[in-house]
Structure formats: C-alpha cells, structure tokens
Design a binder for these strands. Structure first.
Length: 273
DNA sequence: GATTGTGTTGAT
DNA sequence: TCAACACAATCG
C-alpha cells in the first residue's frame, strides 16, 4: 500500500491540506473535497463533496462531456458508460452537465431520460446539435430488417420521395452516409432489388443493427440537413415494450404530417389547416 | 461562524 | 492544464 496523503485526516492543527489521489479533486479547509475541471485556462467548479470518490465521479462525468470518450478519468471507465449515458451527455450542453453536478441531480436526470427515452415518437427527440434538419420519415423495423437478411427495406414511397435516384444508379446501388446521434457516420449501400421490387439498405446495415442493438419494433428515423442537402441523419429508438404492430400504429398516430426540425426544435406541420 | 467557490500563482 | 493556497463571498 502506498501512503497517499488524501487518505490522511487533513484537519489537524490547520496545517497543510492533504491532497487528493484523484484528478480534478482538491481539498477544502473543512475536510471536504472540491471537484474542478479546466477549460480554456479557466477553472470550472463542479461542487464540493463529502468524500473524494464523489468528487472524483463528478470530475469524471465532466471530463467525458468536456473532453470526450478518450478523457482520462478517475473511476469511470469508458466501457461502463452505456449508450444512453453517452447520448445523455452529448445531448446536453457543458453548462447543463456542470449545473447538474453542482446541484447533484445528474444521476436523477440521467435515469429520468433513460425512462423517457422511447416513450415518445422520434419527432420529440432532444436535439443533439444545432443543425437545422428536415424530418424525412421513420420506420418501425420488422423482424426481417434486424434478422439474418442483412438488409432493411425502405418503404417504396419513402425511398422514391427522399432518396430518389435514377433507376440505373439505384439498381447498381449507391453508397449513402448517415450521421447518428453521436456524430458517428454510417455508410450503407442503397439499392433497388428488382426481384422483390423493393428499395433496401444492404452493406453496412447489419453492423448498424448490431451496434445499436436494434430489435424488431424499434424505430429508425431519417433526417436530412437543411444546410447541406446531401447530408443525412439516422436515429433509432427502442420500442418501449410495444410489439411491432402496436408500435407501428402508435407511430402512424403520432406522425400525421411533416415534421421540420429547427435548432433542435421539431415543428409539426399539419397537412392542411 | 461555517462552508463554498474564486483569485492567483507556480509546476508540469 | 493542473493543484495549492489564501481568502472573499455566500449560506444558514
């Protein structure tokens, strides 16, 4: 065992404060521990905590938000950070995360967002960035979309409306890039299968299914950047306990019109009014 | 009065 | 970028 000063009691006779073994954790005169992170030569205070570990955890969360997945952390490994937490972090500003840490509401808000996730249609997602987007369509994926066929069928009407290439290029197949909530770009082959008269995403699709743990009845949503017409987005949402048919009818009810996303806010345009 | 969080500085 | 230290600001 190494003698780490932070394990000592620091309060005796007002001498030097024992430093912490954790990064971003500083001692306080009253024996508590402060957490802080630096950005652009400025300290960002994350709060004071009774024990070092709590402070270290606060630093870790801030580090992941401020410095990304490769951040050096104290206790939290990137592996035990689940998909939802990554999503949660990336969908909140640094200031929001700091605020939650200082108010000690981070865990609660994370749990809350996990519970809410999938409760509403995709057009109500939190914003992941400030880019203006147009909602294209969403599909409740079928068992075959996530099965061994390694392809997803794009409903014909949607395919022709939104990914409308000329017949020749589609039959040969084209590569389309889609950016997900985390900013990761997925490349899929998009082509038309004459045999089944359907438009499909093929190459790259199974990897997406695997990584997103996509299951039948989950939702996959497609968006297009309003700034750069060729830029496409893909998002997926769990089915929240509904089966394929239930989820499909729920989506139809929730999406009667066209949705436009502006600065992270989705505006539902009713067909006519 | 107790505690938190900032100003500042020097090291890495 | 980071922690140490001093102490002003704020809280209860």
């Amino acid at each position: 065992m190494n003698m780490i000063s932070g394990d000592d009691d620091s309060s005796e006779s007002g001498k030097k404060l024992a430093s912490s073994k954790y990064k971003g954790v500083v001692p306080q005169p009253n024996g508590r521990w402060g957490a802080q992170i630096y950005e652009k030569h400025q300290r960002v205070w994350l709060g004071t905590f009774i024990d070092q570990e709590e402070a270290a955890q606060a630093y870790d969360i801030a580090a992941l938000r401020f410095r990304g997945q490769n951040a050096i952390t104290n206790l939290k490994s990137t592996n035990d950070q689940d998909y939802m937490e990554k999503l949660f972090l990336s969908s909140h500003s640094k200031a929001d995360i700091v605020d939650m840490l200082r108010k000690r509401t981070y865990k609660h808000e994370l749990e809350q967002s996990k519970q809410n996730y999938g409760m509403t249609s995709c057009c109500n997602c939190n914003s992941f960035d400030q880019e203006k987007r147009e909602f294209l369509f969403e599909k409740v994926v079928t068992p075959s979309d996530v099965g061994k066929l390694n392809r997803m069928v794009i409903p014909k009407q949607q395919a022709e409306k939104h990914f409308g290439f000329n017949v020749q290029s589609v039959s040969e197949g084209v590569l389309l890039n889609f950016e997900d909530q985390l900013g990761k770009v997925w490349r899929f082959r998009y082509c038309y299968w004459g045999s089944s008269q359907s438009y499909v995403l093929t190459k790259g699709w199974s990897k997406f299914v695997k990584e997103k743990k996509l299951k039948a009845a989950d939702l996959v949503c497609f968006w297009r950047s309003l700034n750069i017409h060729s830029k496409l987005f893909i998002e997926c949402k769990p089915a929240s306990g509904l089966d394929f048919k239930q989820n499909q009818s729920r989506v139809e009810m929730l999406n009667p019109g066209t949705v436009v996303r502006l600065f992270g806010v989705n505006i539902l345009e009713k067909p006519d009014e």
